[in-house]
Amino acid sequence: MPHISSRYHFRGQHENEQVLRVIHRHWFNIFVHFLVILIFSFLLIASLLVLPVLFPEMFDAKNARFFLFVENTFFILLWIFSFLLWIDYSFDVWIITNERIVNIEQKGLFVRHISELNFSRVQDVTATVEGLLPTVLNYGDVLVQTAGEEKRFTFRQVADPYQVKDIVMKLSKSVLDDDLHKMVNALHTDKPQ
């Protein structure tokens, strides 16, 4: 499996650990939020162009400056809010390496959860696609049943969940095969002559 480790690096990455995949939520998830931002921006620009034409008597010199100040304030708030949305989207990430799955969840600016799952603890993987839009756009959840403290590890609203499921299953199986090989070799070494 080709790895993309030279481009990506995360905090806590082990020395020989290779990043194989970096997975974000599907683009549609953030598109919906940005659509709201775009509509607000459009309304602000429209009000800037249309209101002075419709109500010219209200827009004398002093009122026009006040109106521009209010519009500018809204634009600043929209700009900050759109970047907060982008941070929430792009810093929510699942990183699949050759050793484990790392889930980084950014909730707002001040809450960040990081959890990891070694492939040796993977018991079962399920991909779920529910609904018209998820089916058409091919996104959904991947649920990983674990033997660890966190019983379930979830990839939420990721693109092509079936492929993600296959990757996790293959990596989990290869780790199990490696462990099996090591056990078999250890048994052969200990076998009495």
């Binding site: 481009r7 990506y8 690096h9 995360f10 970096v22 600043i76 900050i80 970047f83 907060l84 982008w86 941070i87 792009s90 810093f91 990430v93 990183i95 980084i104 950014q106 600016l109 960040r112």
Partner: peptide
């Protein structure tokens, strides 16, 4: 405004997985 801006820049600088996307953002 300044505080919110600083927090946004901090998050991009500290938590971006790729340096190029941090710089661009």
């Amino acid at each position: 405004y300044i505080t919110a801006g600083l927090f946004i820049v901090f998050h991009f600088a500290r938590y971006s997985l790729k340096r190029s996307s941090a710089v661009l953002g």
